[in-house]
Design a protein around this nucleic acid. Structure first.
Lengths: 251, 251
DNA sequence: AAGTGGTCTAGACCACACG
DNA sequence: GTGTGGTCTAGACCACTTA
């Protein structure tokens, strides 16, 4: 009869272990402190190392721990709030004054299929600007901003007779973009796993969990640009602040 | 045994396996189709089952697969876009007309510490409204909306001499809330893992990855309510649509 | 060189869904 | 009952960091 069979359902070991460790982190460890290594922790709790690791993985996913190969497992600081732009406020172009992103490079490529669909370019090449974002010296996000060549045309001229650096070309493209009136934007957020290159830029291993923010920038005639931003899910809390009030950043 | 490394980079087996499976899903499988079971797949690729499972976990995290105990592994449909931003206007109270949430229950509890901090209630009890959200019959999110008792006071009267149901009490609280002018709101999004109760409501196992949206509703005198919404990360793409243009929902 | 976390194996048993 | 995915074990070796 009883639909509540709490006694008869054994809780997985790794799940119980996770709560025990979580409580221990709250009460017995300080931020940055190094935990005992995995082999010792497993022995101390009387489980196999793989089981212990399952618990650690969960805690790392929740931003409680940070593990680094060759170094050890440390207690992570609270997640940092990262502003992702005004939700209801005025729209701003990427690279506008006050933008938290750092423009790094530029190339012309054919965008991945989902982006091409949003931009409504067939198989045409687009400008791809690589940008990055750091907080307190730590990399928190990397971004590729796709702009169709027919939106920013003609492409910016070369400088001084020899080609400008990637970052310079990227800034030139942004300047062209800023000349257009921005009519609106929308965003989506979803969970992803870091591809090899993004992982390297974020100082994580491939497959690390990331929050993928896709921003579409609209002008009157349609979509003028799409940004795909990849945030470290373990260290970031994305903040969408509508109001003038203090944002919801505190831990 | 030829243990000499091939000329390839030391790419982990599960990572390579994931890309192979991902390509196969694109080209050889239809949505909803059942994959061979894990033991057979592992044998087919010549790896241990644990290694195969590591690849499947990644694909499930990315929303490509859906695994159900006792049933099997199926090809997941594309993620559904779930509107999170203001759709009818700049700011709207929860439970306003057009709200996609279904109000289910009400209780009075002491909120968890992070919520209490946002609401700036000490150890006081608050209204806690449980709400849920479904798409095409599938549960996609569950939410608890916390409202301090001093914001909505006096508590709504009992009906007919015997106490109203939880859902009825919850709706009464919302009606009181709607009488106040909403001055603003902000939101954060972060990765979490489903606690036991949320997991049950979302038809997932405990620890499943979820996107946690924390919304703060502001009135002139401060924070009037905080909603903690838990979305299935495997099946949802959160959509923040600012403009009147068609939202960014398509796959 | 030593110590850490990351990957991988080849088993075993368990909880659950379904016929 | 049969078959599925979920948990767990006790090892082994690899890649990386640090000293």
């Amino acid at each position: 009869m009883g639909t509540t069979r709490l006694e008869t359902v054994p809780e997985p070991k790794y799940w119980h272990l996770k709560t025990v460790l979580s409580d221990a982190l709250d009460s017995e460890f300080a931020v940055g402190e190094i935990l005992p290594n995995e082999r010792e922790l497993a022995a101390r709790f009387g489980v196999a190392r793989a089981t212990l690791r399952q618990a650690l993985e969960q805690l790392e996913l929740e931003g409680r721990l940070q593990r680094r190969r060759g170094v050890g497992t440390t207690v992570a600081p609270p997640r940092v709030g990262v502003g992702v732009g005004p939700e209801g406020g005025p729209y701003v172009w990427p690279g506008a004054p006050g933008d938290a992103w750092h423009t790094e490079d530029h190339e012309e490529t054919v965008p991945p299929a989902p982006v091409a669909r949003l931009l409504d370019t067939g198989g045409d090449a687009v400008h791809a600007l690589r940008r990055s974002r750091t907080t307190s010296g730590q990399p928190v996000a990397t971004e590729v901003l796709y702009i169709p060549a027919h939106v920013v045309c003609p492409p910016p001229a070369e400088q001084d007779g020899h080609s400008a650096t990637g970052a310079a070309r990227a800034r030139a493209v942004l300047r062209e973009l800023h000349r257009m009136p921005l009519a609106g934007q929308d965003r989506t957020v979803e969970l992803g796993s870091a591809r090899a290159e993004d992982a390297r830029r974020l100082d994580r291993l491939p497959g690390a969990p990331v929050l993928v923010v896709t921003t579409r920038y609209l002008i009157d005639s349609g979509t003028s640009a799409v940004a795909v931003s990849t945030f470290r899910a373990d260290t970031c809390r994305l903040s969408f602040s509508d109001s003038d009030a203090a944002p919801l950043l505190a831990g």
